[in-house]
């Protein structure tokens, strides 16, 4: 797999450096001050979590259609990345929530639905873990990968359906974004940097999955007993008898 070859990590590092500069140079929020700069990390992690689960959905559908192992690897790797980024988004939101809302955790619909989405995909990974046969694992997780995605629009729309503490969408919504232009630019560059980082992680994880399968196949081949291995040769020497008689 050569998705952008060696250029991808270089491009990721470059865009990340630009994103850090843009996030630093963007003006502070009128109310929250410097604290608002957490947005340049929190929002991209949430976006990448959505992206990961969308890739899992697409790869699951592709596996059900084409039955190619590559799609199963992509779906599983992307779900792992998605669980990581969802957990990170929750943790960063918690860090942001403490000084602004006064609590580490609140029963806000966006927060709760995001946590539920985290557990939905933990279930996906548990399902894979519990199925040893590779074909059955791919089939079962592909089916669940399709159904699990129902949670993603619920998370995104939760701030629209229920008015609570979490602010409604400012970019991915009908109409123009309700955010300062410089802040929006910094945010979009940050989103791009995180998306590229996700691609780096996904590519590495897929390669690792390929290597793991190769090692497992090699071990299975090595452990395979040769024909006639169950027949023991008579050990004449131990019994004090000569084998050449």
């Amino acid at each position: 797999m050569t998705l952008f070859g060696r250029r991808l990590p270089i491009a990721t590092a470059l865009v990340t450096a630009i994103a850090i500069a843009a996030a630093t140079l963007a003006p502070p929020d009128q109310l929250q001050g410097e604290l608002q700069r957490l947005m340049y990390v929190h929002v991209p992690t949430a976006w990448v979590a959505y992206l990961s689960f969308a890739v899992t959905l697409a790869a699951s559908v592709a596996w059900l259609w084409r039955r190619t192992p590559r799609f199963d690897r992509i779906a599983a790797s992307s779900a792992e990345a998605g669980v990581f980024f969802t957990g990170l988004a929750i943790a960063l939101g918690s860090v942001w929530g403490k000084p602004t809302w006064g609590v580490w955790w609140t029963w806000d619909p966006r927060v709760v639905t995001t946590a539920v989405m985290f557990f939905v995909y933990v279930g996906y990974l548990a399902l894979r873990q519990a199925t040893p046969d590779p074909l059955a694992r791919a089939r079962r997780s592909a089916v669940f990968g399709v159904v699990a995605f129902v949670q993603v629009p619920i998370v995104h729309m939760s701030v629209v359906w229920w008015r609570a503490l979490h602010q409604p969408p400012t970019v991915l919504k009908p109409g123009a974004p309700t955010i300062d232009g410089r802040m929006l630019t910094a945010l979009l560059i940050s989103v791009l940097a995180f998306s590229l980082f996700y691609l780096v992680v996904l590519r590495a994880r897929v390669r690792l999955a390929v290597r793991t399968e190769e090692v497992e196949a090699a071990l299975a081949e090595r452990d395979q007993e040769p024909a006639g291995n169950a027949v023991l040769a008579p050990q004449w020497e131990k019994k004090g008898l000569r084998a050449d008689v």
Binding site: M117, F119, V122, G123, A126, F144, A148, Q151, I154
Partner: peptide, 9 residues
């Protein structure tokens, strides 16, 4: 684990 989180709605 598979069912309960999806019952949120």
């Amino acid at each position: 684990l598979l069912v309960v989180p999806l019952t949120l709605p």
